Amino acid sequence: MTTITDARLDDELRATLGETRAARWASPRAPYSPRIDVAHRDGGPVAAALTSRRGATAAVKIVDVWWRDEADTAAAAALVDEIVARAEAAGDAAVKWEVPFGQELPSFAVERGFAPFAAPHPSAPGTLGSRGYVRWLLDVPHDEAPYYAQTTLYTCGAVSGLLAAEAAGEAGFGAADASRDVPVDGRPAPSLADRDLELAFWRRASNYPAIEPVGLGVVMRETLPADVPVEVFLDHDGPVLIESYSGFERDFRVELQAESLRQGEATGVPVHRTRIAIEEIARRVAGGDLALLLIDEAPMHGETGPHWVLAHAAGEGVIVIEDPWISSDEGETWVDSHELPIAHADLDRMVAWGEAGYRGVVFVGRR
């Protein structure tokens, strides 16, 4: 077996894969550690596997597995066994498998415990072309969360909040499926009603364009029934997410945040100014709470930016999130962003924003 760690296809493997499949394998994935493992026999490739993984996460994704013919199925299965073994040695919580529409998961994958994810709500392009499967390596008992990918650069907070509402047992994305056009090939198509919901939530919570923790907590309170608790932790006394603004651009956002704080007090949303530990977030999420987390994207994507994700399960040293962002230009799909486990130490680095490193968390209870 040989390994091509930079995932550049050599001419022999490219020709063997065929033009269409080789184009998928050659898609740029540089931020996400692409790796190609190849099994050879008699001087030529008989099986190959392409994997990728986000930085600072506890999962690896099998992008594709190829084998020459039926006689080489065992070689392909051995490559998958090697991928799983490496993941276990690295302390990963899960191995995922992405299967494009038109292909099927091989039977040896089912025999090795790969189980299907529920289909995502179709939205951004990365949700439309593939099915997903997972083999959990750590014991994190939980119900699978719903998934929807943000359709704009700025609606991560709105999407995370709506996914939290859906996970909490309330209406969310997909409630108006009748408005969805289904193409003749049967593949899912985005719902205009879902996108309207995404944008309407953002308008209500926005600090233009970001959503700050108190404002998100207020709109979650407005969205959920009174018996579903909402609670905010933000270890910063002043306005947040305005570091790059001055003059009027800063002043009107400060005023909006002051209004959100007033609304929170009026509607009974507790705002704690103490820093909550990752271990406490894990304890509460494992106990059934949902946690909306303000993170810095840099550990996962190599680029700094404020971003909201939803934590919905925890166990064995990891917290499982739904990330509404898909880097589809770098080969990601919803399989990367859905049911994504992250180790406590890595999440501790992520859930901190700006030079002050403040931590914003919105807890939502379940019925």
Rank of each mutant, 00 (worst) to 15 (best):
G169M: 12
R180W: 09
A171E: 15
R135N: 00
V140P: 07
A115C: 04
R112I: 00
G169Y: 09
A118F: 06
A165D: 09
G132D: 06
P125Q: 11
V140C: 10
G126Y: 09
G169C: 13
G174K: 03
G172I: 10
Y148F: 15
R112K: 14
A164K: 11
V159T: 12
A124W: 04
E111T: 12
Y147T: 00
T151V: 10
A109P: 02
A115I: 10
R180H: 06
A176H: 13
A164P: 09
F114E: 01
A119V: 04
S160A: 15
T151A: 07
A158H: 01
F117Y: 15
A109I: 00
P122D: 03
P116T: 08
T155C: 06
A109E: 02
P106K: 09
E170V: 13
G113I: 00
G129K: 14
A167F: 15
E111V: 08
Q150R: 08
V140Y: 02
V140G: 04
S160Y: 04
G129E: 13
Y133Q: 03
G174N: 03
L162H: 01
A176D: 15
Y148N: 06
A167L: 14
C156I: 10
A178Q: 11
A124I: 06
S160C: 02
F117R: 13
E170Y: 03
Q150L: 04
S179T: 14
A149S: 15
A124M: 10
L128C: 05
D139W: 06
L153K: 12
L105N: 05
C156T: 11
T152G: 09
R135V: 03
S130C: 15
P106S: 07
L137F: 03
P141H: 06
A175R: 14
A124S: 13
Y147N: 00
P106I: 02
